[in-house]
């Protein structure tokens, strides 16, 4: 083998190993040069705030992917969370806190249904959560008579603050997302439960033989993930003072991308919370940067899609290069 070929090979290796960080940096510099506004503190905070709901959804999904499954119905959990909370306030006059609890319980129904299909009927998570998606979407259409939003103008100030308020100057939704990320980190990466979840995801039969209560953990994971996504729904509803049916779906693909980018960043390719956070921030940065470039809506969308495919391909290639 000639030395130039070896060197080229070497460069490929470096790129594969650190590729994602390089891409992250390149985009960061690109956006910063294109529009100096990108680097301003206010804008960076915008990225964080704008990514809050996506991060919450992606955290829930990280939990499911860590068990070796997939959840296509996280958007439905978001919708149910928003719907239950808004209806609890508008139709039943509950106070903001009870309404928030109602929303989270509403979301957990979606998780319970998934758990019933996956654990009870042993349907594969993909087909099970796809069914949940179908059924959940349809239920929303029926409930809203075709998908019209349910607005609630007199939403209590406290509930609105979930999205619009701030804690010591930091937007509440960013605070909620951060706290959730911290909890998820402790649970998934540091707790007994997290270790058992990872074991199930990597090699279920070995987890069973090790005495782990696999079914119970799977049920809990589906319910917790759905409840987390419902929190995202509360924020979304607070933001616009209404429940918009079928709005959760738009987060699904980005959440999947974030989780898998995150997994590829992990030295052993596991889905993990820090990686997911990085994946979400990457996607948030791309969306924000493309916005600042002043592209039209369609072009921005297409570019985002292409970047998503490339980023995932790179992430997977990088993981394979690591493991070889």
């Amino acid at each position: 083998m000639s030395s130039s070929a070896t060197r080229q090979n070497h460069l490929v290796q470096i790129f594969l190993r650190f590729g994602f960080l390089i891409v992250f940096a390149v985009f960061f510099v690109l956006f910063a040069v294109w529009n100096p506004v990108f680097l301003q503190g206010g804008n960076l905070l915008n990225i964080v705030e704008g990514s809050a709901i996506l991060l919450i959804m992606a955290l829930g999904l990280t939990l499911i992917v860590a068990t070796g499954g997939i959840d296509l119905s996280i958007g439905i959990a978001l919708d149910f969370g928003a719907a239950f909370a808004v209806v609890a306030m508008s139709s039943y006059g509950l106070d903001w806190f009870s309404a928030a609890c109602a929303g989270i319980i509403g979301g957990s129904l979606v998780g319970l249904f998934n758990a019933l299909l996956v654990v009870g009927l042993r349907i594969s998570p993909f087909l099970a959560t796809l069914s949940t998606f179908f059924i959940g979407s349809s239920v929303q259409r029926i409930f809203t008579n075709g998908g019209g939003p349910i607005s609630y103008r007199r939403m209590p100030e406290e509930f609105r603050n979930l999205a619009l308020g701030d804690v010591l100057g930091v937007p509440t939704e960013a605070v909620i997302a951060t706290v959730l990320a911290l909890i998820y980190f402790l649970v998934l990466e540091r707790s007994i439960w997290g270790r058992q979840i990872h074991a199930i995801g990597m090699q279920r039969s070995a987890a069973i033989v090790a005495g782990i209560r696999v079914n119970r953990i799977l049920i809990l994971c589906f319910v917790c993930a759905a409840m987390t996504c419902a929190v995202g729904g509360l924020i979304a509803a607070a933001n616009i003072r209404m429940f918009t049916p079928l709005s959760g779906f738009s987060y699904l693909l980005d959440a999947i991308a974030a989780v898998f980018i995150g997994a590829a960043l992990h030295p052993r390719g596991r889905p993990n919370v820090l990686g997911t956070v990085a994946g979400v921030l990457f996607l948030g940065m791309i969306a924000n940067g493309l916005n600042l470039m002043g592209l039209n809506f369609n072009t921005k969308d297409a570019l985002q899609g292409i970047i998503l495919v490339s980023a995932l391909a790179l992430a997977v290639a990088q993981r394979r290069a690591r493991s070889s």
């Binding site: 990872h198 074991a199 990597m202 090699q203 039969s205 070995a206 987890a207 069973i208 033989v209 090790a210 052993r268 390719g269 596991r270």
Partner: peptide, 9 residues
């Protein structure tokens, strides 16, 4: 390799 150990751990 299948049932005894979670090999990637």
């Amino acid at each position: 390799r299948h049932d005894g150990l979670v090999l990637p751990m």
